[in-house]
């Protein structure tokens, strides 16, 4: 793939998790309850919901709150007709899969209400999406024990990389609805990867598939100065700064 380079990931907690995830299907259910990322999915907020203090505590450092949905784009908006759209999972899996639009949107879906933070410093709370968990997609293909990293690719050539420990256990989904309506093309429709626990550049618009690898390959922005992991609670904006 044009412009991709190997290397550059940081050995840290994520890497140790990857090693432990060799038998990930077995441990998935156990870990689901333990891996709750702050500011994440649909967790109950019995007290303080909607209050100023609650909004502050849910805003990562260096971010400001917004109520609109800014459109950021690195290129022209792709418009793939749904009858020519498909979604693949390939690489280090037992059975590579390709779903048509109808097959994909018939997968078990759920509603997700998540807070989103963009590296350009806006944060938007309680964004409502509908889509399928990455866990469900991975169950269909069965990851090989060597699968440790994922690279998502999109119409228009965009890519982003994630260790699988960042997208398993309910941490990521592929959405085709936003706020009760089909996801608009400028926001990544027909389908967008959403990874609420990372800066929004990791939530690839117009996503068409995920490749599983045994090594980390920086994506479009990760390969040009942006942080490899992009945890907004740690302000992981840039690499080497």
């Amino acid at each position: 793939m044009d412009g991709l380079r190997v290397g550059g990931y940081r050995r840290g907690v994520g890497h140790r998790l990857d090693t432990r995830l060799v038998g990930w299907r077995r441990t998935l259910r156990v870990m689901t309850e333990r891996f709750v990322t702050r500011g994440f999915v649909g967790r109950p907020r019995p007290d303080g919901e909607g209050t100023a203090g609650d909004a502050r505590s849910r805003t990562p450092p260096g971010q400001y709150l917004t109520t609109d949905f800014p459109v950021l784009s690195a290129g022209p908006t792709p418009r793939t007709p749904l009858d020519r759209w498909s979604f693949f999972i390939e690489g280090l899996v037992r059975e590579p899969m390709t779903w048509t639009w109808d097959e994909f949107t018939a997968l078990p879906a759920r509603d997700w209400t998540v807070d989103i933070s963009c590296v350009t410093k806006w944060t938007k709370l309680d964004m409502r999406w509908r889509g399928v968990s990455v866990d469900t997609l991975f169950e269909a293909v069965e990851l090989l024990p060597t699968a440790a990293f994922a690279i998502a690719s999109s119409d228009g050539g965009y890519t982003t990389n994630l260790p699988i420990s960042d997208i398993l256990n309910g941490q990521a989904f592929v959405a085709w609805e936003y706020d009760g309506k089909p996801l608009a093309p400028e926001h990544g429709g027909p389908a967008r990867l959403v990874v609420p626990g990372r800066y929004f550049w990791k939530s690839a618009k117009w996503v068409r598939g995920i490749r599983l690898l045994d090594r980390d390959v920086p994506g479009f922005w990760e390969g040009l100065g942006y942080h490899n992991r992009g945890d907004q609670w740690l302000e992981e904006r840039y690499s080497g700064d």
């Binding site: 800014p70 950021l72 784009s73 290129g75 040009l224 942006y226």
Partner: peptide, 16 residues
């Protein structure tokens, strides 16, 4: 020039 992004992306006017 696509400037509303984490960086600026300059694309070919002919092929994008």
């Amino acid at each position: 020039a696509y400037v509303r992004a984490p960086g600026t992306v300059l694309r070919c006017p002919a092929c994008s």
